[in-house]
């Protein structure tokens, strides 16, 4: 049995850029935008050791979506967005609350909250199956391939593109702008809370703002690409960049490069394997991480191994991450 289709150079590498560019161009752009916005926010989550909060949020928007659908009785993006955002904010608040009030560790609180909300969403879908045009499978994996098929947004006579892409582009632009504007505050509160409070930066508000923005990014991204891609894109670019560079600005730049590469490579991978393109983008991103892990010039596995084999006692670079 042949699991993967035979590799056809023309089909995999040429056609997406020529004949089918109208289709795959949007998919690639969407993947890149999601990955860009998530990667920039995720970088600061990683620094704050909150990587898995994004995981929790992206699972627990499900009941918000279902309830919004049941109330508004439409699948319009506005109602969905409000419902999902409410669920996302509820998640961060619940995690904080349980963690603070009950002497439960943060990891356990995350686990309890997101799984309960996700289960609630699945049960609600089954209860109202005849009325809800939603599918938990779709929430988990998304349908990136459907993005270009939506009716394009028109603004003042200009045809802009599919609504999901336009929305994501706006969110990504604002994300970049926010990171540039609040760079100092984010940097200081992530690395040194005491310095932040002595500088008069309100850490707690930066935290809440970051959570709010994370919720917005996750919610606007995952409708098209699914929860798993969102989680991956929150973490993978930042983790890869942190292997390759020490300074935060360089890392943020590498984040963008990783986002771009993983969406392009992922697209080709998805076309070749004829499988879910979102999942293929994550696999590509994970592959890039593995490359950086093995081959990175300062501390890669390969050099470590060589050092061990040749028994050259080289000093470990000890720079704070």
């Amino acid at each position: 049995m042949n699991l993967f289709p035979t590799f056809d150079w023309h089909h995999v590498f040429v056609q997406p850029w020529t004949r089918d560019f109208g289709l795959f161009g949007w998919i690639m752009l969407m993947g890149f935008l999601v990955s860009l916005a998530c990667g920039l926010v995720g970088k600061f989550l990683i620094l704050r050791r909150m990587s898995l909060v994004g995981d929790a949020i992206s699972h627990s928007v499900l009941p918000g979506l279902v309830i919004a659908f049941l109330i508004a009785r439409t699948r319009s993006s506005g109602a969905m967005f409000v419902g999902a955002l409410a669920a996302a904010l509820l998640t961060t608040w619940l995690i904080d609350w349980i963690h603070r009030r009950a002497r439960i560790k943060q990891d356990a609180a995350i686990g309890v909250v997101f799984s309960s909300l996700f289960a609630l969403g699945v049960v609600l879908i089954s209860l109202f199956a005849d009325r809800v045009d939603l599918d938990q499978d779709c929430v988990l994996n998304g349908e990136l391939a459907l993005v270009p098929l939506m009716a394009p947004v028109k603004l003042a006579g200009w045809t802009l593109g599919p609504p999901a892409v336009v929305r994501m582009a706006v969110v990504a632009l604002i994300t970049v702008a926010m990171v540039v504007c609040f760079y100092k505050e984010l940097l200081v509160t992530s690395f040194d809370g005491i310095l932040a409070s002595s500088l008069g930066i309100p850490s707690i508000w930066v935290h809440h703002g970051l959570m709010l923005w994370l919720s917005i990014v996750v919610v606007s991204a995952f409708e098209a690409v699914g929860a798993i891609l969102v989680i991956a894109m929150l973490i993978l670019p930042g983790a890869t960049a942190s292997l390759l560079a020490q300074r935060l600005p360089t890392r943020l730049g590498l984040n963008v490069v990783h986002s771009l590469l993983s969406s392009v490579i992922g697209l080709h991978l998805g076309v070749w394997w004829d499988c879910s393109i979102g999942a293929a983008m994550v696999v590509a991103g994970a592959g890039l991480f593995c490359l950086a892990w093995v081959f990175n010039p300062t501390n890669g596995l390969l050099w470590r191994w060589r050092r061990n084999v040749l028994e050259e006692p080289a000093p470990e670079p000890e720079v704070g991450s």
Partner: peptide, 23 residues
């Protein structure tokens, strides 16, 4: 072998393996 913290590593393994599985 890296300076990546455990929560980040967990997230990467979770998403990476799951995506491979979905493929």
């Amino acid at each position: 072998t890296t300076r990546i913290k455990e929560d980040t590593a967990l997230g990467m393994v979770l998403a990476g393996y799951f995506s491979l599985g979905m493929c």
